[in-house]
């Protein structure tokens, strides 16, 4: 626990907790009409006492929209990473545990998938399925799977060679029990670290997809969408881009710092 009490760990943890809190509470506390209310007389207002973070091209409060965007972005990123872990676990464990031909075939496939840039894969899947919220999750989830499968396989391979696994085998444990009781719990720490870091990448991917119009669709509020909408007003209202940009930066920064610290704490090899 002491290792968490570094400035980096503390900043990361507070940022992550703050953003989680905003993401969960925003939709409950902010009345829907406040975020969607268009005030045509107050378009593109700079940040002021009336409009904390200014307003967008339709006179909507950026403060409320960026808060609600936290919910969308985190939800998509969280669900996508969960999906890639769930898909990556069986792939990686089977590969690392059974080795041999199964491993060769599966990892050849995974390596090939890794030749596709994750963002390209996500964009293509999203464009093909038709861009909307669930498909954005599926697209990012699938795009991140090969990467996680690779890492999980490496860990499973390492753990499967441990003496206690051999001992359990000698005691007559069957494969399924072995995987569930001995392999899985022991590969979790590095996977949690990787999932945290992937979460940061997923936030960026969601922002990228939405920015290109192949992710979250309006009227849903999302950081990528907000940045995209701001493009036409950069000269007169730069804050419309800077506010959601800063939201993405703080979230990803927090997740990266938190992930780095988590790695120091959980990964036995860096001890």
């Amino acid at each position: 626990m002491k290792r968490f009490l570094t400035p980096k760990g503390l900043i990361g943890l507070s940022l992550v907790l703050a953003i989680l809190l905003i993401a969960i509470l925003a939709p409950l506390l902010i009345p829907a009409d406040l975020a969607t209310r268009m005030t045509m007389t107050a378009r593109l207002r700079p940040p002021s006492a009336d409009y904390l973070l200014g307003t967008d091209q339709l006179g909507r409060s950026l403060f409320y929209r960026v808060m609600l965007g936290a919910n969308t972005s985190l939800m998509i990123a969280g669900a996508a990473v969960a999906m890639s872990v769930l898909l990556g676990l069986p792939l990686g464990i089977i590969s690392g545990y059974y080795r041999g031909h199964v491993d060769n075939v599966l990892m050849r496939l995974v390596d090939t998938l890794l030749s596709f840039p994750a963002l390209l894969l996500a964009l293509t899947i999203s464009a093909m399925l038709g861009p909307n919220l669930p498909n954005t999750i599926i697209a990012i989830g699938i795009a991140f799977t090969p990467f996680l499968a690779r890492i999980i396989r490496g860990e499973a391979l390492r753990v499967a060679q441990m003496p206690y696994v051999e001992a359990a085998r000698a005691a007559g444990t069957n494969d399924l029990q072995m995987i569930l009781r001995h392999i899985l719990p022991n590969i979790m720490p590095p996977i949690i670290v990787q999932a945290t870091i992937s979460l940061a990448f997923a936030i960026l991917a969601e922002a990228g997809l939405s920015f290109l119009g192949l992710g979250t669709q309006p009227p849903q509020s999302s950081w990528g969408l907000m940045i995209q909408a701001s493009r036409d007003y950069l000269d007169i209202a730069p804050w419309t881009a800077l506010v959601p940009g800063a939201a993405v930066a703080l979230t990803v920064l927090g997740l990266n710092m938190f992930g780095d610290t988590l790695r120091d704490v959980l990964d036995p090899r860096t001890k």
Partner: peptide, 22 residues
């Protein structure tokens, strides 16, 4: 470096358009 990997490239792009171009 940490800040560099935490911002999407298109955000850097927008900042550069604002600064170097506009």
């Amino acid at each position: 470096a940490l800040l560099g990997i935490s911002l999407p490239d298109f955000f850097w792009g927008i900042v550069m358009i604002l600064l170097f171009a506009r």
